[in-house]
Design a binder for these strands. Sequence first.
DNA 1: TAAAATTGATAGTTTTACTATTAAATTTGC
DNA 2: GCAAATTTAATAGTAAAACTATCAATTTTA
Lengths: 224, 224
Amino acid sequence: MHNLLSNFRVDVNPSLYLKDPESSSLGQNIIKSSIDLIDLHGIEEFNFKKLAKEIGSTESSIYRYFENKQRLLLYLSSLYWGIMEFQLVMETNSMKAGMQRLMKAVEVLFSTPKLNYSSFKLDGAKLRHIINSEFVKAYHNKHVDEQNKAGYFSIYKRLVLRISELINDVNASYSYSNSLSSMIIEGSLNQYFLSEHFHSLTDCHSEDNLYLFYEDLLTKTLKQ
Amino acid sequence: MHNLLSNFRVDVNPSLYLKDPESSSLGQNIIKSSIDLIDLHGIEEFNFKKLAKEIGSTESSIYRYFENKQRLLLYLSSLYWGIMEFQLVMETNSMKAGMQRLMKAVEVLFSTPKLNYSSFKLDGAKLRHIINSEFVKAYHNKHVDEQNKAGYFSIYKRLVLRISELINDVNASYSYSNSLSSMIIEGSLNQYFLSEHFHSLTDCHSEDNLYLFYEDLLTKTLKQ
DNA sequence: TAAAATTGATAGTTTTACTATTAAATTTGC
DNA sequence: GCAAATTTAATAGTAAAACTATCAATTTTA
């Protein structure tokens, strides 16, 4: 069966890597196994030494692909948000503007990404878990501003602005579309995290519940 | 003029420190200067060696107060949320249940804390800035679950649940008070951060705007 | 003022993050 | 199919961070 995504490739900012990990099997192993390891033990416990051991390579070989693990995390984040953006566009671009389209976008955002694209075969659930627990650390750092200027977050930002536009399409007079959009996206990461670690601080313990929470919120907030 | 807060003390979980920093002038210097340094350079660049140099003490002396810088950050977070909770209770407990009280609580949460309490004289704006940029890192780590079990986040959690109750008072049939509460609190940290580093992703570039955004959101969401 | 507790000075260990060098293996161009 | 170019592996090493240990000097307290 032909897969719609099989010829799709996220154009990750090339300055995030030193050598394109898609271009070699070592590179692909780096991506695949880093997802496994970060998913399992978190970014703090993760380092290139452990990754090298895991894939039967060496630290110095990995350093030829990525300057450091922070860049690798940014690469994985771009991959994730790029895939999300692609799926979102695919699912919503034929719909007519309005609440239904916005909610379809939200639905896509909250569902596990289907990752069968380009040269990678990646585990969508693991990648999503990484983003849920580690993405905030990707931009809460001393170098945000220069990294932002270098375009390391551009895919993510484009996605936020896409949702802003969908919000504007629903209600053009609403004044906080950017804040609402970023709140939905980052908020959803946070609600997943809360459900896993601070059960009492959220009511959303399933994708469905999260969807209903936001549906209620958006419907009421954007009603004219 | 007598200050209402001058005899108030946040009961930070004692297992967050090895020796109570309020009990000595070295301890108070540790708190004061760590706020200065983390505010200035972020938690990654901060370490006990630099802090020791700053206050004219030694690394080993600081290690007698805190096991590591992560615990110190959790201590500062507890201090912050404890002060916020105190101010919130002070300002709202005499009000009658309803939207006005909820919005007063939100107003308190979004304003810079007034820190003149107990033995510390702390800079509220700096502490708030630290929380805005570093608090997410305080719980996005490998040891969340055991730290949560040890009660390291209890003040913060209590605050979220207080807001949940205020929400329930406004609309008892609303099903997502916990999610809405955590979304408001963490979301506000995030909106501050976005305003500072990702200008285009938010519409809230002042305390007032942030307040209006949430006022609109809460009013519409909780209307019966 | 003696005992107890705290702090300072110094030094050392382990781990992480990263760099350098060279040989072996693999790929590529012809 | 082979020489040249590139990539990878193996090894070693540095610098800084994150602690730990020891003991003398100072301060507190009883």
